[in-house]
Amino acid sequence: MREIHVSAITDAVKKLCIDANLDLEPDMLRAFDRALATERSPAGKQVLQILKDNAQMARTKLIPYCQDTGFAVCFVELGQDVRITGGPLADAINAGVGQGYTEGYLRASIARSPFDRVNTGDNTPAVIHMDVVPGATLKLMVMAKGGGCENRSKYKMLTPADGPEGVKDWILECIKTAGPDACPPLIAGVGVGGTFEKAAILSKRALFREIGSPNPDPALDAIEKEVLERANRLGIGPQGYGGDTTAFAIHILTYPCHITSLPVAVTIECHAHRHKEATL
């Protein structure tokens, strides 16, 4: 049994929160460059160029890429041969979020109750999704999830008869209704199958895949490519000012589902796609 002390987890989460907000991943920077090469709209091109500059400024001047430094969504893969010592795992993760957001000059954006709306002051708590997996390591995947795009995420229970065409149309509908509100170019994380909550969690988890990488399942890859192509014909464009780059990627994860069901959850993610991982 390998032991991991909570202090190592807190330190790791703290660093992941700060780095995610200041240092956009290289796959996003490549996506900006690809879009700049194909975008026809002058206003759209200008937006893409400014977003590239913004990423550079965030990294060099240590100013968060976006003022909405997000809800800390943390996917944890805990090896079953690991024993956590020194306290509860969830407390260690939340301590890391609190320290990261406070010491990293990140915005506190969490209300302690949906009804009284009082800010918790340090962006805690995180939303934690925990899986126990084989092995003796602990994998931490942190996403700083913006509120503007999250507000445009949607769920629909389709019927088996709606089939793949129904799924494609629904993803497209989500991108279209998100429009300028969600800071396009967008990424759609899609969870298909399972139950109501399983589909939603998959739609978040799908966002961790590298932008521009193919889906390992060829059938899903074909759906992703078709929906992306259709999304970029909508004309919404960067920031909704009109253009060819409405979405950067569609990422689909699936799970077996009940014979009566075809659940589809779509998490809408903005171009401020901030996430980092670490393995202890």
Binding site: L51, N54, P64, C66, G240, C270, A272
Partner: peptide, 9 residues
């Protein structure tokens, strides 16, 4: 409109 997500710039 200002550019959403360009908060550093």
């Amino acid at each position: 409109g200002a550019i959403g997500g360009a908060g550093a710039v």
